[in-house]
Amino acid sequence: MQYTAVLLDLDGTLVDSIPDIAAAANGVLTDLKRPPLPEDVIRSFVGKGSDVLVQRLLRHTYNSEQLDPDEYERAKASFAHHYAQSNGQHSTIYPDVVEGLNAFKTAGCKLAVVTNKPIEFTIPLLDALQLSPYFDLMVGGNTTAQKKPHPLPFIHASNELNVPASQCLVIGDSVNDAQAARGAEMDVLLVPYGYNEGIDIQTLDADAIVSSIKHAAKWATTRSSITD
């Protein structure tokens, strides 16, 4: 295998965390005395970190692009409070994730999670789902000065793992991963089942779209499209 390190997104790539995120987001709305939103609506807010999620939640709720700064700060604190309680409670690992991680490990790859989720929520989620032992490194949304789609999180992971960008493979589910990987000059695979902020992943710049992490490991081994 030509890759020495595999850098994986978390929410929408490894784990379906929408039930826990939606619970926290609706907790914010309860605190604001506003009606709850369906999970599918909240799903469209996910992708660029919890601060942007809260911004999108407030803009949708009040149907306004303008945010009251004080209310925004209260809503951020409310989301952190509620998510600390719900994180990992109902999240599930996507099919074939464990098989794919094992395949990459067997091939001798270093593994890292690179997510826009704050690190204080990333580690407990991976711990709750017993995924932490797979990873040599965890990069959260507040680990570096910039979040994806900025390339800095992937560059940081490459440096920390001491693996050049040309030997890193990114696996994600959205434009954030695709753009950040290209900015870091890394190959990138996308899965079709995640949180893509309403953007068709077929339109994104990626080396391939694979149906699972297991198929990503096959692709990385064969460098060919996976159709089975």
Score class of each variant (00 low, 15 high):
99 E>W: 04
227 T>I: 08
1 M>A: 07
156 H>S: 01
194 G>V: 08
79 F>I: 00
56 R>F: 07
66 Q>V: 14
70 D>V: 13
150 H>I: 02
25 A>F: 11
115 T>N: 01
82 H>D: 06
115 T>W: 04
140 G>H: 01
160 E>Y: 05
3 Y>R: 02
223 R>H: 15
20 D>S: 06
62 Y>N: 07
12 G>K: 05
153 P>Q: 02
67 L>M: 09
37 L>T: 02
51 D>H: 14
66 Q>Y: 08
87 N>M: 03
126 L>C: 02
64 S>A: 10
139 V>A: 00
158 S>P: 12
142 N>H: 05
92 T>F: 03
217 A>G: 04
159 N>V: 01
31 D>Q: 06
33 K>V: 00
111 L>K: 13
75 A>W: 03
158 S>K: 09
179 Q>D: 12
135 F>Q: 07
110 K>I: 06
106 T>V: 04
178 A>C: 06
196 N>H: 14
15 V>K: 06
18 I>S: 11
113 V>N: 10
44 S>W: 05
131 L>E: 12
162 N>L: 09
101 L>F: 10
22 A>D: 07
99 E>Q: 15
11 D>N: 14
83 Y>A: 00
168 C>T: 11
105 K>F: 04
217 A>H: 08
123 I>Y: 02
102 N>D: 14
191 V>L: 06
183 G>T: 00
164 P>Q: 06
7 L>M: 05
105 K>P: 02
47 G>F: 08
64 S>W: 13
198 G>A: 05
31 D>Y: 09
216 A>R: 07
33 K>N: 12
119 I>M: 00
73 E>Y: 06
24 A>F: 06
67 L>R: 14
181 A>V: 03
216 A>T: 04
21 I>P: 14
158 S>C: 12
182 R>M: 04
51 D>I: 10
5 A>G: 13
220 A>D: 05
219 W>H: 14
87 N>L: 00
24 A>L: 02
91 S>G: 08
20 D>A: 09
150 H>D: 12
63 N>Q: 15
197 E>W: 11
173 D>T: 11
94 Y>E: 13
79 F>V: 00
17 S>E: 09
62 Y>E: 08
212 S>Q: 08
84 A>G: 15
55 Q>K: 15
200 D>M: 02
193 Y>F: 15
209 I>K: 11
91 S>K: 07
101 L>P: 13
99 E>D: 15
100 G>H: 10
47 G>I: 04
50 S>L: 09
76 K>D: 04
21 I>W: 09
7 L>Q: 08
